[in-house]
Computed example of a mutant assay.
Amino acid sequence: MLRAFILSLAMLFDMPVLAHAEISAADKKDIDAKVDAFMTGVSAGKTLEAANAIFLPRLTEKKVELQNLASQMSLAVSYAGGPLKWAVMQETQSADVLVFRQYVAYGTELPLKFNFVFFKTPKGWFAYNVFFSDIAASDIGG
């Protein structure tokens, strides 16, 4: 009896951790709009502006890192043969304020993979992590 009570109590305290919060349709649209603006800017060669628009305001203070990222993205887009098109490959929601999305972005020459981790602030959704690379066989189940 005591074991059942302790187990029930333990499960009660674990419930908030086990609960999976979904983001709203409006939040999904906000993230879609951020990614669309980012990809459109990157595709148009405005990589620094695109990075400044998608990242958390605190991260945009890191001017050298943003410039390096913008230069690397410009080079990658030139290899891909822009303008880019993009589609969601994967989405994982860890909470109602944290979302991981993986996109395939492709031009006329080759596809690229973009990973974003979005965080919801009082001012809206912002990326605090953006990673891009070529696509490996393991990315598509191979």
Rank of each mutant, 00 (worst) to 15 (best):
S24D: 03
Y128E: 13
K46E: 14
F131V: 04
M11W: 15
N52E: 15
M1A: 12
G82R: 04
K34S: 12
L59Q: 15
D32I: 03
D30W: 05
L112A: 00
L84I: 09
K34D: 05
L98F: 07
A4E: 08
Y128H: 15
V104C: 12
F132I: 01
T47M: 03
R3H: 14
F38R: 08
A80F: 00
K113C: 07
H20R: 09
D32V: 05
F118I: 10
I6G: 03
K63A: 11
F126A: 11
M1N: 10
F100W: 11
A70E: 04
A70C: 02
T40D: 14
A10S: 12
S133F: 01
K62C: 01
E109Y: 09
V17C: 01
A26N: 10
A21Q: 09
K62Y: 04
P16Y: 00
T47G: 07
V88N: 06
V64D: 08
K85W: 10
R3W: 15
P83W: 08
L59C: 05
P122I: 04
Y128S: 12
G107N: 09
T121S: 15
L59A: 13
G107S: 11
Y106L: 07
A44V: 03
I135P: 06
V97A: 15
I6P: 01
T121C: 02
Y79S: 06
R58E: 09
G124Q: 10
S133R: 01
T47A: 14
I31G: 09
M1D: 11
K62W: 06
E65L: 08
V77P: 05
E22D: 14
F13Q: 07
F132N: 06
S133Y: 00
D134H: 11
